[in-house]
Amino acid sequence: MALMQLHNLAVENRLQALDLELYSGEVLGLIGPNGAGKSSLLLALAGLLPYSGQITLKQKNLQRYSAIERARSIALQPQFVDSAWSLSVHDVVSLGRLPWGDADQKIIHAAMHRANVSELARRRVDALSGGEKARVWLARVLANQPQILLADEPVANLDIRYQRDVMRLLREYALSGHSVIIAIHDLSLAAKYCDRICVLNNGKLETTGRVEQVFDEQSLAAVFGTELFIDLERDPPIVLAR
């Protein structure tokens, strides 16, 4: 049974009607060129963009969830995050508990541990490096304990080690009975860590399927407008523009 179902979901001027299902335990990767509608899809799911069509979460129309109920089930990590104030890492991660109206220290510390930022707890977030910040933002989303975690380009601007760490973390989160949707430009990482891939182009859903079904040199070349080199036999797999 699907955890979430999108039926005829459309966002004015950004996304044409699409159908999609999301299952518990999976990482779904949204790929496609810039402006394809990846972020718009995530924003609509997080309640930040008005949409037409229907989204059902656990067999219940998302419109019938209150804002707080929705926020407890679906958490968003936007592409660009910054803290206006020089908050401590612990305070930023605690923000993840806002929808729950508590400050459960056990959950907050577990989230920091999971994102590997426990040692930074007392540091000021504006004094951290880009890689450290990215993990702190993720820890905030983890503390929210959402059923569905949405992450927009979670590994952009990270060095390769942090990219791997963040992708592993998202994968583990999905495996612990949740599901994760990420918008991602790095196709090699997408091939390695996503269970299923959704290809968007010009606001249209092109295909959805398992990595080996979707990562086809010819069809992806048409979407990205360039020749691709794809080798899924290797570990890690390689997907690059020629």
Partner: peptide
């Protein structure tokens, strides 16, 4: 006061956290 705290990370996050 909770909104003021939530807004620290910007509008989109505050809104996604269920704040009006």
């Amino acid at each position: 006061h909770r909104l003021l705290l939530g807004l620290s990370l910007g509008d989109p996050i505050a809104q996604s956290m269920g704040l009006r």
